[in-house]
Design a protein around this nucleic acid. Structure first.
Lengths: 170, 170
DNA sequence: AAAGATTGACAGTTCAATCTTA
DNA sequence: TAAGATTGAACTGTCAATCTTT
């Protein structure tokens, strides 16, 4: 049997029954984005767990990694990339330090500043986890044709730009 | 100035510089879904806050509301709809009870079962919040043409079905 | 046993207040 | 004063254990 409707279709039906005058159609997109994000997050977490890490760890470590040599950023920069508050970032850095994936260094010029640097162990971890991670993501997307993927990507970019998610400075 | 790239484009660029052989293109979609979901959630929260509620409250109350008369569901049913665990749901019901939006009733036939019922106050709240909520969502989507919206919706549905997010039973 | 709901320990986040340095 | 980072309280989530009823 081929499934042609998802959970959001069912929810839209319910609204149509209960309040036909209310226009809930935006949910067809917004609701799906929300559900998809959560479901994908869960799947990816399982993958990370097999490598002994949590998803938020990859979030930080990969951000440092792709910043390139010398693989270090201030907590403030990390916050800009990762969409969490500075308080959360302090906690994340603590945990990553405990695990030996990063080290804190004081900036010699401005002693208010801290630099978070990837250790060799942290760099190795990203290199070990990343390929499988993106392969797994690619696998989730193989239900879409190339053309569908291009359209989807474009539409999502439009929405993100409209919401002000513009590129950060280095 | 017209912005033509978003934060994810920048991240893809960084990866290309650091590791050109790694195929990170799935992130063009998965990463955007994740960011979009978080950003939208935040915006919608502001809207809910103006009505004095948290987003998870609307999540539960709207689920009860759209189930139609007599506006009641068991905690287990609520869990199936809202993508949280039973422990979280018990807590949510406690809070909503404190606020007077729902009441717990024991099932007379099977005393293991509880029914969560929307109060008049809870129903009124949904009726007051819902229209503005969906209008706000619609506003976020007005950057897309009708055709783009249809394609986007279809692609998201395909992904959700592929991930097993099929309709629940009543 | 198994189903349904609750509990309590733990983790991670936000937010406002605080500390240090510029 | 302001910038950058940290702290601690409050909140919400997960997960495993537990309690009650079937």
């Amino acid at each position: 049997v081929v499934v042609t409707s998802d959970a959001v279709d069912r929810i839209l039906e319910q609204w149509a029954q209960v309040d036909p005058d209310l226009d809930v159609t935006p949910m067809a997109i917004i609701g799906r984005v929300s559900r998809l994000s959560r479901i994908v997050d869960r799947r990816l977490s399982e993958n990370f767990a097999e490598h002994g890490i949590d998803d938020w760890m990859y979030d930080v470590l990969a951000t440092l990694y792709r910043s390139g040599p010398p693989w270090e950023l201030s907590p403030t920069k990390l916050v800009e990339h990762t969409m969490v508050t500075t308080g959360a970032m302090t906690n994340r850095i603590d945990r990553l330090t405990d695990r030996g994936f990063v080290v804190r260094r004081h900036d010699t010029d401005d002693r208010r500043r801290i630099v978070v640097a990837l250790t060799t162990s942290g760099r190795t971890l990203v290199e070990r986890v990343a390929p499988g991670h993106y392969r797994y993501e690619a696998d989730l997307l193989n239900a879409l044709s190339t053309s569908e993927r291009i359209h989807l990507e474009k539409a999502l970019r439009v929405l993100l730009i409209r919401l002000g998610d513009t590129p950060f400075r280095d």
